Simulated scan of single mutants.
Amino acid sequence: MATISKRKRKDGSVAYTAQIRIMRKGQKTHSEAKTFPKKAMAEEWAKRRELELMSPGGLLTAKWRGVTLDDAIERYLHEFAQGAGRSKRATIQQLQRFPIAQVQVTDLTSEQIVGHAVMRRDSGIKPSTINQDITWLGIILKTAAAAWKMPVELNEFESAKVLLRSKGLISRPGSRDRRPTTEEIEQLRAYFRRSQRIRPSAIIPMEDIMDFAIASSRRQEEITRLIWTDLDEQAMTCWVRDAKHPRQKWGNHKRFKLTREAMAIIQRQPRAQGEKKIFPYNGKSIGTRWRAACAACGIEDLRFHDLRHEATSRLFEAGYEIVEVQQFTLHESWDILKRYTHLDPSNVKLK
């Protein structure tokens, strides 16, 4: 399989090139070469390399030699993350900026994975954020093994993950219990009203959108996907298209119950001719307006998504049972629903 050829270099010295070619069914499946100053060295390398290639998985490993984690991430983004949101893509792409991205995928070890986590911890990153790195690293490695047949050492990854969790370097994010206070809501409402007066035709009706989020428990992007033809005013219901689901990104359409407050907000929205959407605004623009309002009002650590927590808690405080609350919020189970439930003891009614 190997041939040794002799040639003269420009400086007059002699070099020996060992060329390995592997043929299967009359076709070349692999070829590689290396040059040495002595013939014995070339022969020794060729024999050793042939044994490596003929060992189980040897040819597959050779095929992917030189492919780095950075290459795998780029391919993953191109083939499997076309519909991913901006924040998700940014999280994946961040891995490409770290030294671990330059490691060959087939050579990646648990030591290198642990080293990445330690480096991130030493730079002040929280375990929950490091966990995102490790989660995406696992997804990319498993995709490389399953979709591209890369000989990835998944056991190395799993060993590193077990160690990182046991040492507290990675952890799941804690449940968030932030609810806006009455004063904060009034501050934001006043800010949005002032903005509306200044530019009535160009400003998103943020007061209505905030109140609708609290009254309906709908997510930011879901609000902008609601359409008039999906609204049933008599039954007080509406459909939300492509509702968030851990495994089903598209086509998960669900019907939800509207509170009286949510219905009233919908009914006062202007309905331009030919406009399908109830709230025809860009979800990212809503997020930008929200952050600007919180900053202007001096309100810290309040996310638009916290309004969903507020809405869910208010439903329980109003006396609705778990199965009834689910008709409004569309949570799949109580385990998920309770993450969004942060009751104020003073609002619990005695029975």
Results as ranks from 00 to 15, higher is better:
residue 2 A to T: 08
residue 5 S to P: 07
residue 7 R to V: 06
residue 16 Y to Q: 11
residue 18 A to I: 01
residue 31 S to F: 09
residue 42 A to F: 02
residue 50 E to N: 04
residue 54 M to W: 04
residue 58 G to F: 02
residue 62 A to W: 01
residue 67 V to Y: 10
residue 74 E to A: 15
residue 90 A to E: 03
residue 94 Q to H: 09
residue 94 Q to W: 07
residue 95 L to N: 00
residue 98 F to H: 09
residue 106 T to A: 06
residue 107 D to N: 06
residue 108 L to W: 02
residue 126 K to A: 05
residue 126 K to T: 01
residue 127 P to I: 03
residue 127 P to R: 10
residue 129 T to G: 09
residue 133 D to C: 06
residue 134 I to L: 05
residue 134 I to V: 06
residue 137 L to K: 00
residue 144 A to L: 00
residue 150 M to I: 05
residue 157 F to V: 03
residue 160 A to Q: 00
residue 162 V to A: 15
residue 165 R to W: 01
residue 166 S to G: 05
residue 185 I to H: 10
residue 187 Q to M: 12
residue 190 A to Y: 01
residue 192 F to D: 08
residue 213 A to Y: 05
residue 215 A to K: 06
residue 221 E to Q: 15
residue 223 I to N: 12
residue 238 C to F: 15
residue 240 V to C: 15
residue 243 A to N: 08
residue 248 Q to T: 01
residue 250 W to P: 07
residue 255 R to I: 06
residue 263 M to Q: 13
residue 268 R to N: 09
residue 277 K to F: 14
residue 302 L to Y: 09
residue 302 L to R: 14
residue 303 R to P: 14
residue 305 H to D: 00
residue 313 S to H: 01
residue 313 S to V: 07
residue 314 R to E: 08
residue 323 V to E: 14
residue 325 V to S: 07
residue 342 H to G: 03
residue 349 K to L: 07
